[in-house]
């Protein structure tokens, strides 16, 4: 089967309206050859899971700066599970305190990208992880 471009949903859960970071990442992933579905700010867990399902994405990338990740991330993960989207790669960025990172990874986020991360590193990480997942599925 031919490889399709990697499809990524970029969304901002919760109520903070600072979407510059999300847009920078979306643009960088576009330039890395990915198809980025950008849904922007104020996304509920239900909206994120529904978009991920309908758009059949490989990756869900969340940006959050409000500190509500401890509350929202588990709800998003639960919504994705409920829709049988367990195999979607989860990454996140924004303001995630160092102390919270282990818990966020525990929830299923493979990559946590804080301020200062190079967008090329994010793209490379996603590419490698998706290649692995696709390889595992094909095997």
């Amino acid at each position: 089967m031919t490889d399709r471009p990697i499809r990524v949903l970029v969304a901002k859960p919760g109520l903070d309206g600072h979407d510059r970071g999300a847009k920078v990442v979306a643009r960088a992933l576009r330039d890395a050859g990915m198809e980025v579905i950008y849904t922007g700010i104020r996304q509920t867990p239900e909206m994120i899971a529904e978009a991920a399902l309908q758009e059949d994405v490989d990756v869900v990338g969340l940006s959050i700066l409000s500190g509500a990740h401890r509350d929202l991330f588990p709800r998003i993960v639960a919504q994705l599970k409920q829709k049988q989207l367990d195999d979607v790669l989860l990454v996140c960025g924004g303001i995630i305190p160092d102390d919270d990172i282990p818990a966020v990874k525990q929830m299923g986020f493979a990559g946590v990208f804080g301020p200062g991360t190079s967008t090329q590193d994010i793209a490379a990480f996603i590419r490698a992880q998706v290649a692995q997942k696709r390889g595992a599925r094909a095997a």
Binding site: P5, R30, M34, I37, Y38, T39, E46, M47, A51, E55
Partner: peptide, 20 residues
């Protein structure tokens, strides 16, 4: 993009009333 092969798909952003 004719250069990278990537794309920004931003139409859904305007259709949030329809979610759920």
């Amino acid at each position: 993009s004719p250069f990278s092969g990537g794309a920004i798909l931003g139409d859904r952003l305007r259709m949030q009333d329809l979610s759920g």
